[in-house]
């Protein structure tokens, strides 16, 4: 193949970022930080009926060190806040966070002494999924939004 002539046959050209992001966004390793009722919706999303495997995110890792997508699913109270932070710090770069449900996004209806008013006070959040609890469709929509966001990033970017 001469330099300058268009590639043909079994070759595709792409950018490095593009192909790395393609790999990242179709193989999320989720760490489900499930604390409350929203967790039920996560479980049904992750089960066969809604088939989260379509997005390559079907494999929950229960160690933050093996995960790259943290799902904060449920109410986070002040007593638990240091634990959320510690778990997030244990995850390796690149890492993302989805806040699932009204409680994780904003404290929900718990405007009281015990609940953190949104998990974004402790850790950076990429995607917020609304609802109390969000339906599995909303949850999957959040995963798709997350994929779209991952696609815009560069592999050399330091995220924190």
């Amino acid at each position: 193949m001469e330099i300058g002539s268009p590639p043909s046959g079994n070759i595709i050209t792409t950018r490095l970022d593009k192909i790395v992001n393609w790999g990242r966004k179709w193989s999320f390793f989720c760490y489900p930080f499930v604390t409350a009722c929203c967790g039920m919706e996560y479980m049904s999303t992750a089960a066969s009926h809604y088939d989260i495997a379509r997005f390559g995110a079907e494999f929950p890792r229960f160690s933050p060190r093996q995960a790259d997508l943290m799902l904060v699913v449920g109410t986070i109270c002040h007593k638990l806040a240091p634990v959320v932070k510690l778990v997030h710090e244990q995850m390796c770069e690149p890492k993302w966070v989805i806040a699932v449900g009204a409680c994780a996004c904003s404290g929900g209806f718990y405007r009281n002494y015990s609940v953190v008013q949104g998990v974004d006070r402790i850790i950076p959040v990429d995607v917020y999924v609304t609802g109390c609890p969000p339906r599995p469709e909303a949850f999957l929509d959040g995963i798709m939004k997350m994929q779209a966001k991952v696609d815009t990033e560069s592999m050399f970017q330091r995220r924190n």
């Binding site: 002040h78 806040a81 240091p82 932070k85 405007r111 009281n112 002494y113 015990s114 953190v116 008013q117 006070r121 402790i122």
Partner: peptide, 19 residues
């Protein structure tokens, strides 16, 4: 002491990174 009636219902506690 949060169950005292004069504890404001929406007062937020400071966030702590570590116990």
């Amino acid at each position: 002491h949060p169950l005292r009636k004069d504890y404001p219902i929406d007062r937020e506690q400071p966030l702590f990174e570590e116990r």
